[in-house]
Each structure stands twice: as structure tokens, then as C-alpha cells.
Simulated assay, not measured.
Amino acid sequence: MFFYLLFITFFKKEINLFIIFSFIFFIWRTFSSYYYSNGVLDLVNSSRILTLILLINITIKKYPKSTLRAISIVFSSYIILNLISYFIFPQGLYRVEGHQLAWLLGIENQFGFVLIPGTLLVIIYFWYEYKNVKWIPLTIILLTVTTLLKAWSATAIVAIFFVLISLFINLRKNIKPLYSFIRLSIIYIIIWFIVVRFNSVSFFESIITDFLGKDLTFSGRTRIWDSVFESISYSPWYGFGINSEVLGGIVTFFAAHNMILQVILDTGFIGLILFATCVIIAGVKLQKNKNSRISVMLLIGIFGILIGGLSESYRLNYIFLLLIMSYNIKYIQRD
């Protein structure tokens, strides 16, 4: 499938700047892992992401409605079936690493990886088709919120409420959307440095301790982040290979528990620059179409994932799905 789509992309001249930098990023990711992680390449997931990018880049231009409908159906199914499995099998469908309970969408802390972009993509399809949010997306929103509240993954809860409140603010009739790629990027960078780099979380104390029921170390995340920054200093440009971990306690190793830090830990600052370039390339398209409702919804979805990734190392699959859709925003906007 991958090689067929790659052939079509070149034969039909569907190659673009976003695809080029996405390939460079994942090639670098594989290269750094080959040399620094004992040959762990993660080729399956990397090829899966690149296949998704190529597929969406082709289909969304010729069949935007069908593409959005198919994506909506897939994610609606994920959300519904995961919640059913979550309630029917309280002890999990299987275990990860021998002790962590997991369901259709994995462990509880990883639910947001699918639920946040999935809910947003269901809403986008119905807005594209009907210019309104009907009962089906409202039901999906309810199921998503129910799942995350039951799982009580703190940053995922914050992320989904950011998405829902942002949609309410920006989808009002006769009012131009308030968000833009530049504004949200600046705000996110400031929050990231305050929370992750400087561990200055006193401003968020009431939210963290009273509402989310967490301590000011984000359940030990800040100690892990300190270990990650120390580890990064030993290989800042190249990283340590895919799925790298750090010593977060006396004998226990952890992932970075932050999406951006995990990118740096895995692929170094070279990988971060390449990843940021992909985000910026898509973001420029969104900035040029900042008054489009669907453009703003994609923007909200991207930053929803990044917010959820403040304390979890989400995989990159669905942020790249939103990014390739953002790059092709002119084919799906109807404003």
C-alpha cells in the first residue's frame, strides 16, 4: 500500500513541501534509531503514518466529502467500541508490560491520543456537510467526555475541554474566529516553558490540586522531565533512538511523559527542528485561512493534541493526520 501510494504521488505529481519534510523527519527518526537504539527502527508505525499522509493527500483533493465521512466513521467506531469495552471489561482486555490494564485504545493515559483528534474530526465532517453540529457529533462528544472523566487522565481532560470551549468560542455565527496559528503557537510555547522547562506551576495550583486531584509534580512528571533534560545534554542533536526512556526513580525507567521532550529524546534537536518545520508548514496554510471555520477546527485539534501531550508521550500518528489535512485546507473549507 505504501509503495503504491508513493508511486501515485510521484506519477500524479502530488508531492508537496509538507510530504517532503515529513519523509525527511521519519527517515531521520529511523536513522538516529539505527545508530543509537540498537537497530530499533519502528518501521511499522513510521510507514503507517507516511501511508496515511500519502493517502489523505491524494483523496482529500478529489473526494473531500467521502474522505471526511470515512475518517468520521472510523473514529466514531473507535470511540464507541472503546467505551463499551471499558465498561464491560473493568479489569481490561489485556495488560501492557505485565501490569497496566489496557482496552481497545490502550491504557487509560493514552485514550486522549485517539479521543481528542477523533472527536474533532467527527465534528469537522458534520460541519463540512451540514454547517452545523448535529446529534451524532454531540453524542460522540458525550461519549468522549464520559470516557476521559472515568479514566481521569488529567491532561486529556484539560485538552478535551480546551477543544470544546474553543469550538464554542470560534463557531458562533456572525463572529470571526478568534484563534490563529501564530497566537496559539506563542501561548503554547510560553506554557510549555513555564510548566515543563521551569516547573513553575504555582499559577496552576488550584486547577492541578483541587480540580484534577494531582500534586504539583504532576504525579511525578516534573522529576521525569528533569531526568530527560539531563539525558538530552549527552546527545542533544541526535537523541537516543525511538522509544527512549530515562531513569525517573531509583530503579524505574520511564518515557519522557511529554510529546515534545520525547521527540527530542528520540531524535535530538535535529528531529525537533524537522517536526516543528512540518507543523509550521501546515500552520502557514491555516494562518492564511484563519477566518475559515474548518481551518480553526483543525488548528484547535492540533493544539488539543499538543496540550494532551504536555504530560503524556502521545504517538505522532494523528497529529500528522491533522497536519496533512491542514496543508490541504483549501479543498475542505466551505466558508
Rank of each mutant, 00 (worst) to 15 (best):
M1R: 10
I8Y: 13
I8V: 12
L17S: 15
I20G: 15
Y35E: 07
Y35I: 12
Y35A: 04
V40E: 08
V40D: 14
L41T: 06
L43M: 14
V44Q: 13
S47C: 07
I49S: 06
I56C: 07
I56A: 14
T59D: 06
K61W: 04
K62L: 13
T67L: 05
R69W: 15
S77F: 13
I80N: 01
I84V: 07
S85W: 05
F87E: 14
I88R: 01
P90T: 10
L101R: 05
L105M: 04
E108G: 04
Q110V: 11
I116F: 11
T119A: 07
L121T: 01
I124V: 15
Y128V: 07
Y130W: 14
K134H: 14
P137V: 06
I140T: 08
L142N: 02
K150S: 13
A156H: 03
V158N: 05
L171H: 10
L178Y: 15
L178T: 11
I187E: 02
W192N: 04
I194C: 06
I194L: 12
V195P: 03
R197E: 15
R197K: 13
S200M: 07
V201W: 00
E205M: 03
I207H: 01
D210F: 10
S219H: 13
G220L: 03
G220E: 01
R221C: 08
W225C: 01
S231G: 03
Y238F: 15
G239M: 15
G239W: 12
F240R: 05
G248T: 00
T252W: 11
T252Y: 10
I260N: 00
L261R: 09
I264C: 11
I270P: 09
L272A: 05
A276Y: 08
T277E: 02
V279G: 00
K288I: 06
S292F: 10
G309D: 01
S311C: 15
Y314A: 01
Y318R: 09
Y327R: 00
N328M: 02
